[in-house]
Design a protein around this nucleic acid. Structure first.
Length: 158
DNA sequence: GCCAACGTTGGC
DNA sequence: GCCAACGTTGGC
């Protein structure tokens, strides 16, 4: 199990790092992509660190850090008729969609915006930054994770 | 709101 | 099993 770091995207209008700080932890529900599901179901383990990404936001970028807080479990929203994530094809005895719980770790003073991340040589290979990538859950290498943490501590130059 | 890029669906 | 049409994501 090589990777211990992840990047998860959320639209802050729907659920932001501030919401996670307030709630303490949350079920990462609503993921309806098989590759992203497989990462959560097969590879995420309690304690793994997660970069919390704000997408469809101004600015888009990394807003803070969370950690995986539990084992994978069925995403309850797939069985909730009133949920936008309801999946009538999912069998309760063999749920299609799995998720993990994540807990708040830290909130950056400022979101590290996409253009700064793109300008960082250590992140040149980062999956989530690749053109055309739309996966909402992606693995992050320890080096990439550390580079982002370093950037979060840098004083902003004026 | 636009639209490029991508995943999924469904007819054949 | 191909692939065009469609829907969604997400930066801008």
């Amino acid at each position: 199990m090589p990777t211990r770091h992840w990047l998860c995207k959320s639209e802050p209008d729907v659920y932001s790092i501030d919401d996670l700080e307030r709630d303490g932890s949350t079920g990462w529900d609503g993921v309806r992509n098989y590759q992203a599901r497989n990462f959560m179901r097969d590879s995420m383990r309690p304690g793994d660190r997660v970069l919390f990404w704000h997408s469809n936001a101004d600015p888009a970028g990394v807003a803070g850090v969370a950690k995986v807080a539990g084992k994978p479990r069925p995403d309850p929203s797939q069985f909730d008729r009133r949920s936008p994530y309801f999946d009538p094809g999912s069998d309760p005895d063999d749920p299609t969609w799995m998720m993990v719980d994540v807990a708040f770790v830290s909130r950056f003073r400022e979101v590290i915006p996409l253009d700064r991340l793109r300008a960082e040589p250590a992140l040149a290979g980062m999956l989530a930054l690749k053109r055309g990538n739309r996966l909402s859950v992606t693995p992050v290498t320890p080096e990439e994770f550390e580079a982002v943490m370093r950037m979060s501590r840098e004083r902003k130059r004026v």
